[in-house]
Each structure stands twice: as C-alpha cells, then as structure tokens.
C-alpha cells in the first residue's frame, strides 16, 4: 500500500504529525498500536484519530509495525502484525512516533533497552542502577532515554542515520532533535 508518508505511532506526536501532513494534501497512514496515554483517562486519542480518518488519513488501529525493509540506508517499507507479510506499507518517508516504554516504543530487559521496529540506536545508562533516582519526584533518568537522531531528526541505526526515517515525540532521546514536520513537507512535496 502506497502513501505519501507512513507514521508509526498514533499517540499525540503521531496524530499531530499526521494532521499537519494531511492538511498539506499528503496521503498519510498511521499505525497505531492501542490508545495513547498522552491525555490520560480521556478518549482524546480516539477522537483525534477519528477526526484524522474523516480527513482521509488511513489509521491502522490496534496494529503494530513488526518489520522494516531497509536497503542502502533507506527505509523501503514496513510490515505490520495485522496486515501480514503480504502487505507492505510504502512511502517516501517515515516518521517514528512510538513513544517510550509505556507505549512500547522502547522495550527493556534487566540489562538492555532497545527499539523494536528498526533496531534504532538508543541512548540509555549502561548500568540498571543508573536508570532511576531513589527519590520518586526527582527527575528520573529513564524518562530521558530514547532513540538518537541527527540534526535533521533522522534516526540512527547501527551508527548511521537512515535517510528517510525521522523521529518525533517521546521516543526521541533527551537533547536530540525531533522531526520538523513542516520542513518534511517542503522536502518531500512533489517527489514521487
């Protein structure tokens, strides 16, 4: 399935990006696993998704990106759990907006933290004891963990930024750049 942009993550960050892109006339697909907690305890995420849907955005609700086809530093497509291997979501560029731990944009075990869709480079403390502060109300280091991006918010995988994968929202490591969606429209409008 071809789109002008594929956004992975249907929370606050993903929906905002989708709104801006679709306003610019782009055909957008959002893969949204579960609801987002951005606005806790409210139906806002669903309302936002419904509004986007009415504007022609394709929302894959309850679906999860499970694989990415990457060649020569470019993302060529992603596959999802629900659509299966027979359907590849393709677009000139992709936005990673899957959030942090709660929304499973980042996964973790006792020693590691990783990003499951692209295997992006994640910035986090080497030792688990450095992930938290003993004081609950102090700033918690893990709240700053996330994927590493370059100055154009391109996502690093294996030390190299992928050309057409941008990140935005909670998944971006503290201090790293988040995607400028308006700039993306300028860069990608008219391509294809």
């Amino acid at each position: 399935m071809r789109f002008d942009a594929v956004i992975i993550g249907g929370g606050y960050a993903g929906c905002t990006a989708a709104g801006i892109l679709s306003d610019a006339g782009m055909k957008v697909c959002v893969v949204s696993e579960g609801l987002s907690l951005s606005v806790s305890g409210s139906k806002t995420p669903y309302a936002a998704q419904s509004a986007l849907q009415k504007r022609g955005v394709t929302i894959l609700r309850g679906d999860r990106a499970v694989g990415a086809k990457v060649e020569d530093g470019r993302v060529l497509g992603i596959t999802t759990r629900n659509l299966g291997p027979g359907t590849m979501l393709e677009a000139p560029f992709y936005i990673l907006a899957t959030g942090k731990f709660f929304s499973r944009g980042l996964l973790s075990d006792k020693e590691h933290i990783w990003e499951p869709v692209f295997g992006a480079d994640v910035e986090y403390g080497a030792d688990r004891t450095s992930w938290f502060d003993e004081d609950f109300s102090a700033p918690q280091p893990f709240m700053g963990f996330g994927v590493k991006t370059d100055s154009s918010a391109r996502v690093y995988v294996g030390g190299k930024a992928l050309e057409n994968l941008f990140a935005t929202g909670d998944i971006v490591a503290k201090g790293c750049k988040e995607a400028n969606v308006t700039k993306l429209i300028e860069d990608y409008a008219g391509r294809e």
Partner: peptide
Amino acid sequence: CEVACPSD
C-alpha cells in the same frame, strides 16, 4: 478493548 490496549 484489545484494539485499544497499549499492552497487548
């Protein structure tokens, strides 16, 4: 409920 669940 399953579609909305962020925890699968």
